[in-house]
């Protein structure tokens, strides 16, 4: 099964719906270790992504993702804007003007997203960030590449879930939570959680 611009737009709509649904949970995760704005910011950003897509859907998957990237960068004031924005921007650049994506293109896209987040946030695995969810997700997607887009996204979402959970005992080393040092232990990183939520939404929408 291929994946065209309209399909990618639908994945983003599903992602937006999930973020809206989990807005309060993300705010609550962010409150003790951050500034309690992750759910709000991300929800606002994805809300704008959806309303922009409702006006017009660009012709290629890359175009859709570039639109999402620029919208998130402009509309999300906290770290999530530049981080997710860079991720989607790198994916858009990687995909170029391909009209349709196969499984290997989706894996390549996930790799580009991870590279973008790492380049922007300069975090490594174990710092209690989005990278802890995205890194195992990329590995799982690579391993499941031959099973098709839906299956590889599902494997990526499973791995991201576990990766997000793995941030709970960690000391945060990046972002606002890092100022808390030891006190950041015992909290799931909100960025890792939202990454896992988005991948799960993409996986379910791709089925």
């Amino acid at each position: 099964m291929g994946c065209g611009a309209a399909d990618v737009a639908n994945l983003l709509r599903a992602g937006a719906a999930t973020i809206a649904e989990h807005r309060v949970e993300l705010i609550d995760l962010d409150r003790p270790i951050g500034d309690a704005d992750h759910g709000e910011n991300l929800n606002r950003g994805f809300g704008f992504v959806v309303s922009t897509l409702d006006t017009a859907v660009p012709e290629t998957p890359g175009g859709v993702l570039k639109l999402a990237a620029t919208t998130l960068i402009s509309k999300v004031g906290g770290a999530a804007g530049p981080l997710y924005g860079t991720a989607f921007l790198r994916v858009a650049t990687t995909l170029g003007d391909r009209p349709d994506l196969d499984a290997s293109a989706v894996v390549e896209a996930l790799r580009a997203a991870l590279a973008g987040v790492v380049a922007r946030g300069k975090a490594e695995v174990g710092d209690a960030t989005m990278v802890d969810a995205l890194t195992p997700a990329v590995a799982a997607a690579e391993a499941a590449e031959n099973d098709g887009i839906a299956a590889l996204l599902s494997a990526a979402a499973d791995a991201a879930d576990q990766g997000a959970e793995s941030t709970e005992p960690l000391i945060a080393r990046k972002g606002r939570a890092s100022y808390l040092g030891e006190r950041s232990v015992g909290h799931v990183d909100p960025g890792a959680r939202s990454t896992a939520l988005l991948l799960r939404a993409f996986a379910e929408a791709a089925r």
Partner: peptide, 11 residues
């Protein structure tokens, strides 16, 4: 000033 301001500036 802080963290994400650097990211926004670099972008």
């Amino acid at each position: 000033d802080l963290g994400s301001a650097q990211m926004t500036a670099e972008l």
